[in-house]
Amino acid sequence: MEVRTIKVFTTVDNINLHTQVVDMSMTYGQQFGPTYLDGADVTKIKPHNSHEGKTFYVLPNDDTLRVEAFEYYHTTDPSFLGRYMSALNHTKKWKYPQVNGLTSIKWADNNCYLATALLTLQQIELKFNPPALQDAYYRARAGEAANFCALILAYCNKTVGELGDVRETMSYLFQHANLDSCKRVLNVVCKTCGQQQTTLKGVEAVMYMGTLSYEQFKKGVQIPCTCGKQATKYLVQQESPFVMMSAPPAQYELKHGTFTCASEYTGNYQCGHYKHITSKETLYCIDGALLTKSSEYKGPITDVFYKENSYTTTIK
């Protein structure tokens, strides 16, 4: 009895394709271990004539594949690729409408935090270190965002349907971005203890939790000093293409032309909904596939993004 075979390709990165001759009487799992086709788990399936010449994702289970996976995804987590594939199996079914010149995501599976993050990423200057993220990001900007969303979920250790947080998501993504040249110098002034300067680099240099107003941050924000008295913390120097200011959701007025974009969060910790506000020729609110415009805006804002380049204080 002759062994019926077909020729397929296996890959971990969709760049390096490895030619395989597979036995049609055995499952993919018996031949390769966990195997995925377009995100779908085909591990328990036997090869079919229609699979001839198709590319299958496999887990990096030998040295060659491990090197290829690390170079593309910059992670050695053995569960990463499987999590990416199972997320992709959902995100490829989502709709990605162009809204006001940006790629958004039609609401499904509690994905409003991903839509808000995706919209924000198209408006701030950011370059990702893992080629996987950078490639998928370019495709997302062009309207094909399924891979990018699935990668975000995998890097953030999230599953489809789980509630997510924009600030946490951005923080994970910033860790995989090139923020080497970003720098922030802060000064804390206390009447009792004097003053202390701190220099922050990388992710810490672009994120701040405690106030939404970048102007206020430049002037000074009140913080408790270690001595128990009130101290003032203010920005001395900022070198970065953008800054992200966050605070627990509270009524906040966004003035046209003073910011790049913002995240609105309605609801409580267990259950809520994100919308995205962007400042173009007027203010726009993007909620999944829905767009509304207004000249002014007041609502429960939790993150505001500002364009920056270089700032030095005039406070002496």
Rank of each mutant, 00 (worst) to 15 (best):
L37N: 11
H176I: 03
K233C: 14
L114V: 15
K307T: 13
L186H: 03
V304H: 01
T76M: 15
I15R: 12
P131A: 04
A132L: 06
D303Y: 02
C225I: 04
A87E: 00
S279V: 03
T10E: 06
D109G: 07
I15G: 14
T302G: 02
T10F: 00
K229Q: 11
F128L: 02
N157C: 08
D62Y: 10
Q30P: 09
L283F: 02
E308L: 04
A150H: 08
E71N: 14
C182N: 02
E308C: 10
F128N: 03
E168V: 11
L291V: 15
M24G: 10
V166R: 02
D41E: 14
V236T: 06
P130S: 07
F70E: 15
D41S: 11
L88M: 02
K158Y: 01
K191E: 12
P47H: 03
E168K: 15
N129L: 03
C112F: 08
L59S: 11
T192R: 10
V160Y: 01
M209Y: 15
F9A: 15
T211W: 02
T232V: 13
L133T: 02
T116H: 01
F56I: 12
W107R: 01
A136V: 05
S50V: 12
A87K: 10
T27A: 13
V67G: 12
G29S: 09
S104G: 13
Q251E: 13
K298H: 13
W107I: 00
T226H: 15
Y72C: 08
T35Y: 04
Y172R: 13
E144H: 11
L235R: 03
A247V: 06
C271E: 10
A154T: 06
N49C: 14
D63Q: 11
T232A: 04
N110A: 12
Q30M: 15
L186P: 04
M26Q: 15
A69Y: 14
E253I: 13
T35V: 15
C182Q: 05
T64S: 13
V21N: 14
A247M: 03
Q251Y: 14
T116E: 04
T43F: 07
L126G: 06
C225H: 04
K46T: 13
L173I: 14
V206A: 00
Y84S: 04
L179Y: 01
K219C: 09
Q196C: 12
N89D: 05
C261N: 00
L254Y: 06
Y306C: 02
G272W: 08
H48E: 13
Y311T: 05
E239A: 05
A40T: 14
G257V: 06
Y234H: 07
G194N: 11
H256Q: 13
V67K: 13
Y265F: 12
S50C: 12
N111M: 08
N187S: 11
K218I: 04
N110C: 10
A115N: 04
F217R: 02
V67I: 11
M170G: 04
E52K: 13
Y72T: 08
L126V: 14
I301W: 11
P300Q: 14
V58Q: 08
D77H: 01
V160K: 09
C227R: 03
P130F: 03
Q238K: 00
C149P: 06
T10M: 08
L65D: 08
A289G: 08
C112M: 07
A247R: 10
M26A: 14
H90Y: 11
G53I: 07
Q216T: 08
L291M: 13
V12Y: 05
Y172F: 09
D109R: 09
G288E: 00
T19S: 13
E168R: 09
K298N: 15
L151P: 03
M170I: 05
Y155D: 05
V21I: 14
V22C: 13
E296D: 14
Y284E: 01
T159E: 15
Y137I: 09
F80P: 06
P300A: 06
D41Y: 05
N187A: 12
I152E: 02
K229A: 14
F217I: 13
G164N: 04
P249S: 03
I6M: 11
D63M: 09
F128I: 03
Q197C: 08
Q134M: 08
W107M: 00
Y274V: 01
G101R: 01
Y155R: 00
Y57C: 06
N178M: 06
A142N: 15
S294E: 08
T292C: 07
Q197T: 13
F242W: 09
T199L: 06
G82L: 13
T120F: 06
Y208M: 04
E144F: 06
M244Y: 04
S294W: 15
E308G: 02
T55C: 10
I301H: 00
H48A: 14
K44L: 13
V99E: 10
A262N: 05
G101E: 12
D135K: 08
P248M: 07
S171K: 14
C271W: 10
S279F: 04
Y269G: 07
G82S: 14
K233P: 05
E296M: 13
T266P: 02
Q98R: 14
V42W: 14
A132C: 07
A177M: 08
Q216F: 01
L291R: 02
N100Y: 06
P60E: 04
Q98M: 15
P249D: 00
N49A: 12
K158E: 03
A247K: 02
A205K: 01
Y269C: 02
I286E: 00
V304T: 08
Q20A: 10
H273C: 06
K307L: 11
S25H: 13
T11I: 10
T169P: 03
T198V: 14
H256T: 09
C182L: 04
V42D: 01
E281D: 15
A145Q: 11
P60G: 03
N100I: 10
N61Y: 15
L118V: 09
M245A: 01
P224E: 14
E281A: 03
E204Q: 12
G194M: 03
G288A: 06
R167N: 01
T198F: 15
A177K: 08
G257K: 00
Y138P: 07
Q20R: 13
N100L: 15
Y252R: 07
Q238C: 03
L118F: 08
Y28V: 02
G29T: 08
I301T: 00
Y269N: 10
Y311D: 00
Y172S: 12
L186T: 14
N100R: 13
G194C: 08
K293Q: 15
C190M: 02
D13C: 06
R141A: 09
N147A: 11
D38P: 05
Y284W: 14
E281H: 00
T278P: 01
C285A: 06
Q197D: 05
K233T: 13
P60L: 04
T266S: 13
T159M: 13
A150L: 06
V185M: 07
F9R: 12
H273F: 02
L235T: 05
G82K: 10
D23Q: 13
D303S: 00
Y57I: 12
T313L: 15
V188N: 05
T278A: 05
G272L: 08
G101L: 06
V58K: 02
I6S: 08
I45H: 12
L65K: 13
S240H: 03
Y155G: 03
K106G: 13
G220R: 02
R141E: 05
S310V: 15
V243S: 02
Y234P: 04
T258C: 10
Y208I: 03
V12D: 01
N187W: 06
P224D: 14
E144P: 01
P97E: 15
Q30S: 15
E2M: 11
F305Y: 01
K229W: 01
K158M: 02
G143I: 03
T43G: 14
E125G: 13
E144T: 05
S279H: 01
I15Q: 11
Y36K: 09
L133M: 02
T5W: 12
T10H: 11
L163V: 08
G288T: 08
N89W: 11
G228I: 00
Y311E: 09
Q216G: 02
A247L: 00
Y311H: 06
V166G: 03
M244A: 00
W107Q: 05
Q30E: 12
V21A: 14
Y297H: 05
P97S: 07
K92F: 10
D63R: 06
T282N: 05
S310E: 15
Y28P: 00
R139L: 12
N16G: 09
L283A: 03
T43V: 08
I277Y: 01
Y208G: 01
K54A: 13
S294I: 15
I301D: 08
Y274N: 00
I301C: 00
E281S: 02
F9I: 08
